[in-house]
Design a protein around this nucleic acid. Structure first.
Length: 199
DNA sequence: CGGTTGATGTCCT
DNA sequence: GGACATCAACCGG
């Protein structure tokens, strides 16, 4: 790659979380490792708005080692591990407002030759990155990226392509069945008809 | 210090 | 459509 896509300024992240979740659709998420740069267009996101959101890790102001970064400035990386996987979030909201956007699906765009060997279990290309745990593996995002500012290498977000509002669909978030009334909030957003949306 | 728990992925029927 | 792997973080004691 002669010149890499330029990172968005941190001011981009200073918008309401649900609006940011939609603004992130079509943006390009990039990760540089010693093997090179891999990147994908974001096609699916979810907003998590603690402390009032039962599905958020920061529900009820729960401030722990894991959620600490969510209480800081927008535009930083919140990675967390569940089972054997690592999930990637973008911190949003004001200081002390623990909010974040989970990235659930990306469309491979740069460094696809790096992604394929990282996803040996995937039989089809769409299985490389059509899920929150899958895309982190394909891009090489790990817990080491926790707390990283997204306006610089080795992990950053660039403009990508523009997405019209008519392409955006919304619905309930996935995998939060025990979150009480919050499970029905339509805080999941995706690009309609895109093959790399998780479901 | 041990028991519980997932914002999931993969394999099996 | 359902079981289960597998582990860091969290929480109660």
């Amino acid at each position: 790659m002669c010149h890499l896509p330029e990172p968005l300024h941190l001011s981009f992240y200073h918008q309401p979380t649900l609006q940011l979740a939609q603004s992130l659709l079509g943006k390009l998420l990039l990760k540089e490792t010693k093997e090179g740069v891999a990147g994908g267009l974001i096609v699916e996101t979810e907003g998590y708005i603690g402390p009032g959101d039962r599905a958020a890790h920061s529900f009820n102001h729960r401030r722990t080692k894991r959620t600490e970064i969510m209480f800081g400035e927008a535009g930083y990386t919140y990675t967390y591990s569940m089972h054997t996987h690592c999930l990637f979030n973008v911190v949003s909201g004001q200081i002390d407002a623990p909010e974040a956007v989970l990235i659930r699906g990306v469309e491979p765009y740069i460094g696809q030759e790096l992604m394929e060997p990282r996803r040996p279990k995937a039989k089809k290309k769409r299985e490389w990155t059509n899920g929150p745990g899958k895309l982190t593996k394909a891009l090489g995002i790990t817990m080491d990226d926790y707390g990283h500012a997204l306006n610089q290498r080795p992990l950053w977000i660039a403009p990508g392509r523009s997405v019209d509002v008519s392409e955006i669909a919304a619905g309930p978030r996935i995998g939060i069945g025990n979150a009480g009334e919050a499970k029905d909030y339509p805080w999941r957003f995706w690009i309609r008809d895109n093959a790399f949306v998780s479901r």
